[in-house]
């Protein structure tokens, strides 16, 4: 195993649909075993690349030889773009719980995947948290990822049909106390998904896993180890 060397964080700019997104590459010196794209929660629900789960995953993966890319969707932090008429978009989101910009953020995820593929010649992992589950699942097939991890997905709000397009190992991590999706809903949803799949239910934390980031990262690393994706030579 690699030692728990401090991860290096490097700011990057990712071109996406004519604008530049803010991103951070997190990695440790040494052998590169994989690269991972982390897609974060919904920008209109306070989501950014500093999110506790996004950051914890990137750090944990980097310590295991993974080059992790986190990024801000258009209009978040220093990323260019975002809805032109912010109050109108916010108003629509408040009313309907969805907004057209979500398609742009889905495209941003595609751009970030392409950027990571070009920058790092290693097996790719897709990891989404909350809203990010939907954006990564959307690009699973064309990404040629080795595995996909969905943390706190919300199948009641988003469709995940694209998961069927590429039968790569899938891990779903959810809490037994998630306000967006009950245990029975999450179980029934995962049961209906194609194989190969693994469901891990944590009785720690809620949708946000605040203070329980370690349990989440351990669950994900264990899943990747079991599939020999991160195992030492």
């Amino acid at each position: 195993m690699l030692s728990a060397a401090a991860a290096i964080e490097e700011g990057v700019r990712i071109p996406s649909c004519g604008r530049a997104l803010e991103g951070t590459l997190t990695y440790a010196l040494g052998e590169v075993r994989a690269c991972a794209l982390m897609a974060g929660p919904h920008p209109f629900l306070g989501g950014d690349m500093q999110n506790n789960i996004v950051r914890a995953m990137a750090d944990a993966l980097a310590r295991r030889g993974v080059v992790a890319l986190t990024f801000n969707y258009g209009g978040v932090g220093d990323s260019e773009g975002g809805p032109e008429d912010w109050p109108e978009a916010m108003s629509a989101f408040w009313r309907d719980g969805t907004l057209p910009a979500e398609q742009d953020w889905c495209e941003d995820t595609k751009s970030a995947i392409a950027w990571l593929r070009n920058s790092c010649d290693a097996p790719l992992l897709l990891i989404g948290y909350s809203f990010g589950c939907w954006t990564v699942a959307h690009h699973l097939q064309e990404s040629y990822a080795q595995a996909i991890v969905l943390i706190s997905p919300n199948p009641k709000r988003h469709t995940f049909d694209a998961l069927s397009d590429a039968p790569v190992p899938l891990l779903v991590v959810h809490s037994d106390n998630d306000f967006t999706c009950s245990v029975s809903e999450a179980t029934a949803w995962v049961d209906a998904l194609r194989e190969p799949k693994t469901r891990i239910q944590l009785s720690a934390g809620d949708h946000f896993f605040r203070g329980h980031e370690e349990e989440v990262t351990q669950a994900v690393l264990g899943f990747l180890d079991d599939r020999d994706i991160l195992r030492d030579e």
Binding site: F44, L45, G46, W86, M90, W94, F179, H207
Partner: peptide, 14 residues
Amino acid sequence: DVERALKMVPIIGE
């Protein structure tokens, strides 16, 4: 209502 509380976060942020 945590979901609404979260929705309000970017409004407060702006």
